[in-house]
Design a protein around this nucleic acid. Structure first.
Lengths: 206, 206
DNA sequence: CAAAACATTTGACATAAATCAAATAATCAT
DNA sequence: ATGATTATTTGATTTATGTCAAATGTTTTG
């Protein structure tokens, strides 16, 4: 009876397998990973899971861990006039943290929560600093991968400025083509900076 | 006669003094500069000047140089429906290039021009790559300084989404508090994503 | 220094999207 | 499953900002 229950639970939320393959592949898009660095990474990365709706980071905490998502969706948001404003969404093979908080080790306004049940690797900021200090190629990885994100931010700024609500939504769907349909309407609306009602009408007219 | 002419030209556009002090100070906010690295930088940095209104980079060129501004203002913009849209402005002690073009060595949509007569150091992308390859601390500098810019971009995105035209202008003035009054109204309007007329009315009502 | 070119202001009007309010629809917890 | 939350849709109205047009002001150039 108990055993069966356990199995059924496992089926629902399987115990995560420690595969670092995906994350190694991710790094290798930018740098070559030596065996020594691989071993260090394996040592420093830890598997974590978050249930749907779970708060991953509270705004009154310092963000000390970065999460590399294997499955699921996490999101950063902040509060404006008591309402949640989504800042961005992250899914498979992406890193998420509260950037300024993580980099400068101070509090910031951002919360992180789980839009779906999510499996991820966590990396502590202290371990990352250790890696930066001992493996210059990690600095290079950081520089190059930030360049990619940089481009995304610039495009987003452009799309925010001269686009109609409909165009903003279209741009959102492009940016998040893999997951846009898994994000609740209200969160999408605040992400692109329009009201829920307007977004609902845009979706209806198609 | 020729000599006099030459002198008078010089007076108008003085021959720049090769002081690398400011730029060294800038680097030293993030990393320690060894004498060897200083020497390499001195060798690779070149003084350039641009006259007011001069085109620094055309969109049909690849951006192969980054400019560290000593004096003046440069700006990146792109064309939308035949009109210039200002992307950002850079002034004293800031780097400017066409980011994606520079990093990926391909064409992009951005132009760069001089809002004021500007003196700057130029650094060729090939020389920068050389520095990255031989001085890991340059990778670190890049990572850390990008973090700063990252924060600015995030704030800009936030201000674009939920702010009124008036608030957007206020945010622009904050961001560019040193130089906001030196940038023509039309350029400011396209930067914050409102029309010239609206900005003119906002300025008038105070 | 005057004419031309360009930048900013002002006015009248149009419109996309916000706001307020209430009805459905979907999801969650017991 | 069923009632209770929570999310989405729909409708009526308001408002900030855009658009178009023209006047005024400023800078540039021969």
């Amino acid at each position: 009876m108990h055993i069966l229950l356990l199995i059924s639970k496992k089926t629902h939320k399987p115990f995560p397998i420690e595969t670092t393959e995906n994350i190694f592949e991710h790094f290798e898009q930018y740098i070559k990973l030596s065996d020594k660095l691989k071993a260090e990474l394996k040592d420093k990365l830890h598997v974590v899971t978050f249930k749907k709706g779970e708060l991953v980071l509270d705004a009154d905490q310092i963000s000390t861990k970065s999460y590399f998502i294997r499955k699921g969706i996490l999101r950063t948001y902040f509060l404006k006039d008591g309402k949640e404003v989504s800042e961005y969404f992250c899914s498979t093979n992406e890193w998420i943290n509260s950037p300024r908080s993580f980099m400068q080790r101070k509090k910031d306004i951002y919360y992180i929560d789980a839009i779906e049940t999510t499996e991820a690797f966590s990396l502590h900021v202290n371990d990352l600093v250790y890696l930066f200090d001992h493996f210059p190629e990690m600095e290079r990885y950081s520089r190059l991968s930030m360049g990619t994100i940089f481009g995304h931010l610039m495009e987003r700024i452009t799309s925010m400025r001269f686009a109609s609500a409909k165009e903003k939504y279209a741009h959102f769907c492009e940016t998040y083509h893999d997951i846009y349909h898994r994000i609740p309407l209200g969160m999408v609306a605040s992400y692109i900076g329009i009201t829920q009602e307007t977004l609902s009408r845009i979706r209806a007219e198609k």
